[in-house]
């Protein structure tokens, strides 16, 4: 269906047209996967939850009513609810290192530099996953999906101003966490240094 618009596909999908649903799937599967990957930190869980999101969407799409909110917002809400349940149910939620098997990497970088950067980024992502759920969701939608505050507001059911304010508070709290963790790291480094003259 090359000439189909999202709105047409949506109308057909709500009437049970599977090909139309396939069109929507092709458009959003990657984005939903991205979102879930950054919320769970695992490829396997991201795949599992992405499947569940689309099966749930397929089951309930006949009840979908257009209230001026984009279809993506509906999908992200399903994803958000499933991830929240996953976090609640999962007992293995302690600081899982992000698997970097499928993350894009800059191939022209020196391996050591790339490794250091990757470690720093992982540490940052661990800090982000300690933030409240809504803040994590906001950061992912902003930095992975590159959405505007207005679009994020539609997904999170808040006003644009509320999103702007939440974003500012999130950055402040993240800055604090980073400075705390870097000072902790610095003190660990000092403790880890061999005493003078020992070498």
């Amino acid at each position: 269906m090359p000439e189909l618009t999202e709105q047409q596909a949506l109308t057909l999908a709500t009437q049970g047209d599977k090909q139309a649903f396939g069109f929507l799937y092709d458009k959003y599967a990657g984005r939903i996967y991205n979102y879930i990957y950054y919320r769970t930190g695992s490829n396997q869980d991201a795949e599992d939850l992405t499947s569940r999101v689309f099966f749930r969407a397929m089951r309930h799409i006949s009840n979908y009513t257009d209230r001026g909110v984009p279809f993506s917002a509906w999908l992200y809400r399903i994803a958000h609810n499933l991830v929240a349940n996953w976090h609640r149910d999962s007992s293995r939620r302690q600081e899982v290192e992000l698997e970097d098997g499928y993350r894009a990497s800059d191939s022209d970088e020196h391996p050591e530099t790339a490794l250091e950067e990757s470690e720093e980024q992982n540490a940052l992502l661990v800090l982000i996953r300690k933030l409240p759920e809504e803040r994590q969701q906001l950061l992912i939608l902003k930095f992975v999906e590159h959405m505007s505050n207005a679009d994020i507001g539609q997904i999170m059911d808040r006003t644009e101003g509320a999103i702007k304010s939440l974003y500012h508070r999130t950055l402040l709290s993240l800055r604090e966490k980073i400075s705390k963790s870097s000072s902790a790291q610095a003190s660990l480094d000092v403790l880890g240094e061999p005493p003078e003259g020992e070498a």
Partner: peptide, 28 residues
């Protein structure tokens, strides 16, 4: 600078094509 850090940390990830195709088959 926190924003810059975030921009570098959140690199888009790609799902396995085999997974996406398999899920599409199961759905559609």
């Amino acid at each position: 600078s926190v924003e810059d850090l975030l921009a570098t940390a959140f690199k888009p990830v790609t799902a396995r094509p085999a997974f996406l195709n398999d899920l599409r088959k199961r759905l559609v």
